[in-house]
Each structure stands twice: as C-alpha cells, then as structure tokens.
Design a binder for these strands. Structure first.
Lengths: 94, 94
DNA sequence: TAAATAGTTCAAAAACATTTGAACTATTTT
DNA sequence: AAAATAGTTCAAATGTTTTTGAACTATTTA
C-alpha cells in the first residue's frame, strides 16, 4: 500500500549509485553504521571539500543518506529504507 | 561461497540501470517474461536501431540481459540472477 | 541473383556529469 | 574581535555518455 516510485526517482537512485566515489562512501558508512561527519568521510575518500559536498548532495537527493546538522558540522548516515525499496525490493517496483 | 563482485562490476550494473530507456527495456522484458527480438523492443521504445544497439550492448555487458542470435535476429531476455546478485542481495556485497 | 531485413560500427555532435579553485556563510576557538 | 574550521556556491574546465546518420555485414525472401 506504499506508493510506487516514479521513473525519475529510480533514476536518481541508480545514478547516485553509478559512481565509484559514492559507492565507496556507502561502503564506508555501512561499515561504521553510525552518523559520520562529511569532513571525516571526505578525508577517508581523499577528495576535496567541494567534491565531497557535490557527492553528498547527490546521495541525499536520491534519499540514500540522511543528513543532520550539528553546530558547524554535518553528520551523515545511510537511509537503509531507500536501499531496501529500490534494491532489495527491486522486483516489487520494476 | 560465490565470488564477491568487484567495484568495476557493480559500476557497470548501476550505470546500466541509470538510464530511462534501459529501465523501460527492463520493464518491458519483465512484463513479457520471454526472449524478445531487439527490433521489437526498439519499436516499442521508439528508438532508432543504432540507439537500440548501443543500449543492448550496455545491458549485456552489465550481465543484465542475455542474448541469443537466431538467424538474422537477436533475442534478448533478462538475466534475473544478475539483478538478484546486485540488487536483491545488495547488502551481501556492499 | 537482387532486394529486403536485422543488426553493427564508426566518427562527429550534442548532452550530461564531475572536478577545480576562489569566494562565500556560519560557527567555534583563541 | 580575530583566526580557524566545516561546509556551500559558482562558473569554467574537463571528462563521460548518448544520439545521429551513413556505411557496413549477414541472413532471408522474391
């Protein structure tokens, strides 16, 4: 009884997954399983702040991460429900 | 006990899924659940032969479809084991 | 054997995604 | 209050993907 994703939404998710840096970020977040600051992830991935900002935005707009601002930092974690909806339950929406 | 996909392989699959025409092809093939000729799919998607050829190659190289040549036609169907490995079982490989 | 059909290949053009560095905002520390 | 830190925004440059049309191969039909 939960709404079917549109093609636009699916595209956003698959495009977000179709990049090596973003797959690495997902892997990193999955390993830690807690909110981590953008800066920490950026350092671990060896990318610039600007590039990090760009990639986090894409992951966020796809719904793959959630973001929480704490003082001057942003903490990020995986939104597993989105992975489940688009990947694990892929055949439910195809 | 089955080999972990490499980052390259995952990227190929997610890139293949990150396109509206290819998602439509997958949807079409899923509905029919049988091998269909490239020409028939191309007509149903309203794309040129050249564009069809390009997209089928990408889906094939990602392992998302299998292709069988019969006389001068090519028949295509979904390879569900690849969808299962990369999507349904996403968390096993992340 | 000539014409038609199914699909491929190639290179150029067009469209789209990513990176870069500088300038910026907001917050925290000294 | 000044300096430092976390992150964003912008436009330009670079890189990658997709589309296009013409020429091609292989097979089938007339």
């Amino acid at each position: 009884m939960t709404k079917q994703p549109t093609t636009e939404e699916k595209l956003k998710v698959f495009k977000a997954l179709a990049d090596p840096i973003r797959l690495e970020v997902i892997h990193y977040l999955n390993g830690l399983d807690q909110a981590v600051s953008c800066g920490e992830i950026g350092q671990a991935m060896h990318i610039s702040k600007t590039s990090g900002s760009y990639h986090f935005k894409i992951l966020q707009e796809a719904g793959l991460i959630t973001v929480q601002k704490v003082a001057r930092e942003k903490y990020v974690k995986l939104d597993r429900s989105t992975f489940d909806e688009y990947l694990t339950h892929f055949w439910q929406n195809v």
